[in-house]
Design a protein around this nucleic acid. Sequence first.
DNA 1: ATACCAATTGAAAATCGTTTTCAATTAGAA
DNA 2: TTCTAATTGAAAACGATTTTCAATTGGTAT
Lengths: 152, 152
Amino acid sequence: MKTDALTGIAGILRKNTYKMTPQRRAVLEVITGSHDHLTPQAIYRRVQKKYPAIGLVTIYRTLEILADLNLVCRVHAEDNCRSYLMRRPNGHHHHMVCKSCGEVIDITGCNLDELEQRLSRETGFKIDGHLLEFNGHCRACLDRGENDNEQR
Amino acid sequence: MKTDALTGIAGILRKNTYKMTPQRRAVLEVITGSHDHLTPQAIYRRVQKKYPAIGLVTIYRTLEILADLNLVCRVHAEDNCRSYLMRRPNGHHHHMVCKSCGEVIDITGCNLDELEQRLSRETGFKIDGHLLEFNGHCRACLDRGENDNEQR
DNA sequence: ATACCAATTGAAAATCGTTTTCAATTAGAA
DNA sequence: TTCTAATTGAAAACGATTTTCAATTGGTAT
Ligand SMILES: [Mn+2]
Ligand SMILES: [Mn+2]
Ligand SMILES: [Zn+2]
Ligand SMILES: [Zn+2]
């Protein structure tokens, strides 16, 4: 199944005058192989294990292309405004982030259609999409004593 | 009224072992005097007009303190993941951003309470807040020819 | 009013993530 | 195999933010 997905993506790349390279294959394997969202740096570290010679620049460039082709999504968290990257989600979803431990939970079933329609009607905007993110404290952190240990 | 607000804030600062300085006063005047959200740089430029000797570091430090004291809010946009700063909002609200021209419209009346309760029940999370942002194209940009001119 | 000291300031350097430049390499069509 | 546009990594450039540090200052206690 992994092979199938990659050859499919290879086709999409070729169709857009991009080439499938070993580096890009390595990046794709890391991204599709992880359930979590990964920063460019995190992806870099993981890819290096299989492909030590790869450059961080290549990660950035590859991610940009993949995002443009809608094969991966860009996200960003609240705290450090660093831009995060995530693998292609299984459909539309959002995130709930624990302020203490940083755990990320995927959220489905946001229905903002009514709101979007109202806004569109009132402002004339054509709304393409939205970013929704909840923050708070997870069960585990709540139990283990609320305050203190904010993750930097 | 301006004086009142500032002396009030001065009290809050003092209560937290912070001092009210001319620099901080200048920053506060800029922030409270603008309806828009401002980047640290934008605030810097404006403050400089009244207080040319101020350093950019002071802007950052002041904003961090004000945010910690909940006197201003942190926000961040979709595109460039730069962290934006906004003046204290007149209540809970969100943003709609035009991908073409960058215009930001304030949104009120998001009712995510039901969703938050459901999520809280299902996951055990204690939800503190949320970030919601719509993106699309504003009326003006739509009229002036859809595609192309994406802002850098 | 004066003294005092922790808090504050700005300049400069350091950091961090990201982008640009460029010459050498390579994927893949012909 | 040949050919060429696309890709690569190193290094430098970049822009935003943070840290360091010595000099200054706000505000409280005398
Ligand atoms: Mn997700
Ligand atoms: Mn606003
Ligand atoms: Zn947690
Ligand atoms: Zn617009």
